[in-house]
């Protein structure tokens, strides 16, 4: 078993007692091994801590929204609490019945929207070649969206590649211009662009943000049927919308 396999086995928890002892020995005697092992261990810890922080942020969001109303409700006398629950249920169904394109589309949108990674033009940082395409995608990766929008438009006028529409749409959505993103995404899907499934997902989200729930659901259903990119997320979202 080579050293890489020893490290992999360690993380998989599949090493025998002898192999574990070998790891311990190498950690002391082989500095290259120790540094590689340390890097991977640190990566694991970093990923874990990052995820924990993200989850806590999600909880704190909910807690903040709840806390104001909650403390008051619990101090009410029981009969009053019962009455207010009845009232709330009543109001709730009123909202459901008459006001459906509804209160939480923004929240659902925010929970699901994350601009798609740059998979078209990997940027070698430090590269001298600062052509238009590089500048556009650099701005995109650095989340400088107004700048990216201008550059993508310039790029579009010079070379007519379909992916530019896709990324322009990402930028527009990021700038809250779903209205303008929708035709770009639709066009891109029609042209059978390589990232077509991705485009469907974002199209669904753009409709969601615009509260056009019928169109949103239609796109989501396509994704679920294809059962590839974001199929599960689409299914979840559909459930929440229904």
């Amino acid at each position: 078993m080579d050293k890489e396999e020893l490290i992999n086995g360690y993380f998989e928890g599949s090493l025998s007692q002898n192999q574990l002892e070998e790891v311990e020995r190498l950690l002391i005697t082989d500095s290259e091994f120790a540094s590689e092992f340390g890097f991977q261990k640190e990566l694991q810890v970093s990923l874990k801590k990052e995820e924990r922080q993200e989850i806590k942020a999600m909880f704190s969001d909910i807690a903040d929204k709840d806390s104001a109303s909650e403390t008051k409700v619990f101090q009410l006398r029981p009969w009053l609490a019962a009455a207010s629950i009845a009232l709330l249920v009543g109001l709730g169904s009123w909202f459901l019945l008459f006001n459906n394109p509804d209160l939480n589309t923004n929240e659902l949108y925010a929970a699901n929207f994350k601009p798609y990674d740059n998979v078209i033009h990997p940027i070698e940082r430090g590269n001298q070649l600062e052509d238009l395409k590089t500048r556009a995608f650099t701005a995109y990766e650095n989340e400088e969206y107004p700048e990216a929008l201008i550059l993508f438009q310039e790029l579009q006028s010079k070379q007519n590649d379909a992916y530019i529409d896709f990324y322009s749409a990402m930028v527009l959505m990021q700038l809250n211009k779903q209205e303008e993103a929708i035709p770009l995404l639709e066009g891109y899907i029609e042209q059978e662009g390589e990232l077509k499934d991705r485009a469907s997902w974002y199209l669904a989200l753009a409709y969601l943000k615009k509260e056009d729930l019928d169109s949103c659901k239609k796109e989501l259903k396509t994704l679920v049927e294809k059962n590839e990119f974001k199929a599960r997320a689409a299914e979840n979202l559909l459930e929440q919308l229904n």
Partner: peptide, 15 residues
């Protein structure tokens, strides 16, 4: 767990 240190934050950001 008291949250990531600077190196871990950088690692997560690069990731």
């Amino acid at each position: 767990d008291e949250g990531p240190n600077d190196y871990q934050k950088q690692m997560a950001a690069s990731f």
